[in-house]
Each structure stands twice: as structure tokens, then as C-alpha cells.
Computed example of a mutant assay.
Amino acid sequence: MSKLFGYLLSPVFYIFFGLVLCIFHPIQWICYKLFGYKAHKTSVDILNFFLTYCQLFLLNTITFKNDYNLPTDRPIIFAANHQSMYDIPALIWFLRKHSAKFISKIELTKGIPSISINLRLGGGANINRKDNKQAISEIIKLGRRMKENNWSTVIFPEGTRAKDGQVKPFQFGGIATLLKAVPNALVVPVAIENSWKIVRFGVFPLTAGNALKWTVLKPIEPGVKTPNEITLEAETEIRKVLGQEVLL
């Protein structure tokens, strides 16, 4: 039934999703050129509000749970599992007061309305996965911007999307590099549920009637813990929320 509704509703979703991207592309440019970073960020926040709630056209529900009073006066590294591209708009919207940035493939900085311009102007790290030296350098620069501006970063330690929803082992390199540049950052795990189901059949049809959920978990103070220990703790807590086997 979810697939059947997907055939009917996917075109509607894509029309509105694409329309939002096209409308906000010039808006972002104008905000940045005429009013600067803060205006640009506001336009990006509003863009991602609409992108997030475009899911309603697929009859998908959206739940974001955060029981923690996270600080806004220190950088945060949000470590999340990754299931689909639809994970990202909600993270930007619901974490907007933390100015969350992303580590993205450099290929995405061209050719995609709204998304590419945001990646170029928004202050995140755009990395070349084939050039390890460049990637590390960009992540370190991002860490410095986090430290200077009290920005936060969302990182997907799996390194790729889990297309079946099963969490892949987390890699600690990204968190280690960021903590080296901004050692006072708080690490906060985020568990993402069911967004993989949207694209279980690929780009068409998207599936309908999914309960999409983002859950902010207990913050981890780096302290004397190693990046490896921090990363494993984040992965373990996410697995518990998703009801998946905890790796020892």
C-alpha cells in the first residue's frame, strides 16, 4: 500500500520539493550579497523548513525529539546515523539555533539549485574524497570556524548511507579531526529512524506513510575519552534507540 500511494504522491512531492529549491536559490544569493551571512542563514533555515515538511505530501509524519537543554555558547558535534538525503533538511531546521554545518562532497557544490549555493556560502566543509590531504585540511578549517563562531557540525560517521536502515560501524576519523581543531566541542548523538524507507525502491516511487523520527541523545563530554571511545559510545547509544545489535 505504501508503494502504491508512492506512485500517486511522488510526482506531487517532487514538484513541490523542486519548486522550493528553485525559489530559494535566488533568495539565498540576494540575502548573502545584500545583507550578509546572518540573512543568508535565515533564508537557509526557512528553505529547510519547507523541504522538511514537503514530506507531508507523502503522508510521512515528522517527529523531532530533544529532551536536552543543549548549550548555544559552545560548539557541538552532532554525530548521526545516515539513511537518506532526507535526513538533512530536518537536521538543519530543528538544529538551526546551533548553526549546524555539514561535511559534504565537493561535487555537490555545483549544479543543484539552493543546495549547491548553500554549500559554497554556508561555512561547511566541502571535501574531495579522493584527496585525503584536502579533506583533512577542510575539516580542520571547519573546526576553526566552529571555535570562532560557536557553530556546530553534523557528521555522519558511517561514511555512507545505510540503505536498509542497519547502522554501519562508525569511523572515528571525522570526529577525531574536528576535536583536534575544537577540543571544547560537545559531542551529541542523534538517532534517525525510517528515512531509508522513503527511498527503499530508489528515486521512484518514493514510499508514503512513514513515521520519520530524529532523536537527540545524551550529550557526551569528551574529557579524557579518546575519539575512538567517543565515537563508539555515540554509535552504541544510536543502536540502542533503533533496537539494533550493539557491537562490542
Results as ranks from 00 to 15, higher is better:
112 I>C: 00
231 T>A: 05
218 K>S: 07
136 I>A: 12
89 P>F: 03
195 S>W: 03
196 W>T: 05
93 W>A: 00
26 P>K: 14
116 S>T: 10
67 D>C: 05
91 L>F: 08
42 T>Q: 09
69 N>H: 14
83 Q>N: 13
103 I>T: 08
217 L>D: 10
39 A>E: 02
82 H>G: 12
218 K>N: 09
115 I>R: 05
85 M>T: 14
43 S>H: 10
225 K>W: 09
116 S>V: 10
195 S>D: 00
124 G>V: 09
68 Y>K: 12
135 A>Q: 10
221 E>F: 06
23 I>A: 04
95 L>A: 02
222 P>N: 00
16 F>A: 11
210 N>M: 02
168 K>H: 10
17 F>G: 06
112 I>L: 08
173 G>W: 02
33 K>Q: 10
161 R>D: 00
176 A>H: 04
94 F>R: 04
135 A>E: 06
52 T>I: 02
217 L>S: 07
23 I>K: 11
147 K>M: 03
126 N>H: 08
194 N>W: 03
26 P>I: 12
121 L>F: 14
240 K>F: 07
100 A>P: 13
7 Y>H: 14
3 K>Y: 07
216 V>K: 03
173 G>N: 07
156 F>Q: 02
103 I>P: 03
81 N>R: 11
242 L>W: 08
232 L>W: 08
29 W>Y: 14
216 V>S: 05
82 H>E: 09
86 Y>W: 08
118 N>S: 13
106 I>L: 04
57 F>I: 00
5 F>P: 02
101 K>I: 00
108 L>C: 03
224 V>L: 08
198 I>D: 07
203 V>C: 02
121 L>N: 14
177 T>F: 02
153 T>I: 06
100 A>N: 11
14 Y>W: 15
238 I>W: 02
158 E>Q: 14
112 I>V: 15
213 K>D: 04
106 I>P: 00
73 D>W: 05
213 K>Y: 04
13 F>A: 02
10 S>E: 04
230 I>K: 13
188 V>C: 05
190 V>P: 09
20 V>G: 06
202 G>P: 10
103 I>S: 06
129 R>H: 14
181 A>W: 06
49 F>T: 07
96 R>T: 01
107 E>K: 08
212 L>E: 07
214 W>Y: 09
10 S>W: 06
67 D>I: 03
234 A>W: 01
55 Q>G: 05
6 G>W: 09
118 N>Y: 13
63 T>N: 15
43 S>E: 04
53 Y>C: 01
86 Y>A: 08
66 N>M: 05
30 I>N: 07
211 A>L: 12
191 A>S: 13
147 K>S: 14
20 V>T: 15
204 F>C: 01
190 V>T: 11
127 I>V: 14
10 S>P: 02
90 A>W: 01
45 D>F: 06
